[in-house]
Design a binder for these strands. Structure first.
Lengths: 188, 188
DNA sequence: GTCTATAGACCGATAGAC
DNA sequence: GTCTATCGGTCTATAGAC
């Protein structure tokens, strides 16, 4: 059984979220006001409030939209027959997603209030559970918790690190794959 | 030649920063007001403004204080004679610091405005340069930029990941060391 | 160095016309 | 679904007394 994000969004709502994500990435969640979102959309605050009842709803929906990008990657990985192929598929997908997103991933992971909220979010917990299962199987030892945390942090954190600011996307992707494979003990 | 943080701080200023760091960790930088800092210190906002002219100054000083904790670690590593020992020493120090800081590290890395600021900060750039030199020497290829970025992100990101929220400090430390060594191709 | 008091801007959110 | 207008509250920052 697969959970999906908790709400279906209209086209207008999707545009609002896209704008919000870009602003979150530039100014942080707490540093982004509804006025800024409205300005970027070319409407007034009241129009934004017609789409979402509160700012929290926007933040939540934005976080879920980011998270939802992991779903097809997880599903593609789960469809593989061997554990090794599952992990290769997952790694490749995560690297692609991180490189493509580069700027937008960061802000979500950094906001303490948001992290706290997501820890109690059913959809988030489901995605993380499946991610972890792909990476370490049924192992529930502390060690098996640290390894996926490190891999996720390494990939999503490395793409925004100043060291790689002017590294070409393709080069970055290839290198992340190579180092990620080594980290997971995969061939290649 | 070694750069140091740009200001010498009074005792009162240090206490202000300690309080600020704790609040940043709990509520994010943008979510922490001067009122909250003043309340926690048991004084009024005006008294805080006597210590620092603006909120930005507090944020900057807090960031520098965090960063400065890396200095003795870097120096200890640089003092080692072989490259392998340098990297072992650096890894151990970074892991210790990350685990000890756990709660406070997160907020600094998550705020885009802060990251952006630090990218243009002389002290920050010097610390990063020395970190990178320890990890990859004089190699300036793209690959040599991605590897340290991944290691730094992996360690500092892993300690704040929900997966390891209830992993014991000692276990976390040991596991980060083990995986970090593998990532760097170090023995042990 | 700490206080009270306040300025002035911006915040999230709402009411009600069109 | 977008607007104008506005509410109450909080924000950073300052003035000036003690």
């Amino acid at each position: 059984m697969t959970l999906t994000p908790s709400t279906d969004l209209s086209v207008a709502q999707r545009r609002t979220i896209a704008v919000a994500l870009e602003l979150f990435a530039r100014h942080g969640v707490g540093g982004t006001s509804l006025q800024m979102i409205a300005d970027e959309l070319g409407v007034t605050k009241a129009a934004v409030y017609h789409q979402f009842k509160t700012k929290d709803e926007i933040v939540l929906a934005a976080g879920e939209a980011e998270l939802a990008q992991l779903l097809p990657i997880i599903e593609a990985a789960e469809a593989q027959r061997s554990v090794r192929k599952q992990r290769q598929e997952l790694l490749a997908g995560m690297v692609d997603l991180a490189v493509d997103s580069r700027r937008t991933v960061r802000s979500m992971l950094g906001d303490p209030a948001l992290i706290d909220f997501f820890n109690h979010n059913e959809f988030f917990r489901d995605v993380m559970r499946r991610l972890r299962h792909l990476l370490v199987g049924d192992d529930h030892t502390p060690e098996a918790r640290v390894r996926p945390a490190m891999l996720i942090a390494a990939i999503s954190g490395a793409v925004i690190h100043p060291f790689v600011a002017d590294v070409d996307d393709d080069v970055l992707r290839e290198e992340l794959l190579r180092l990620g494979r080594r980290f997971l003990g995969l061939p290649g």
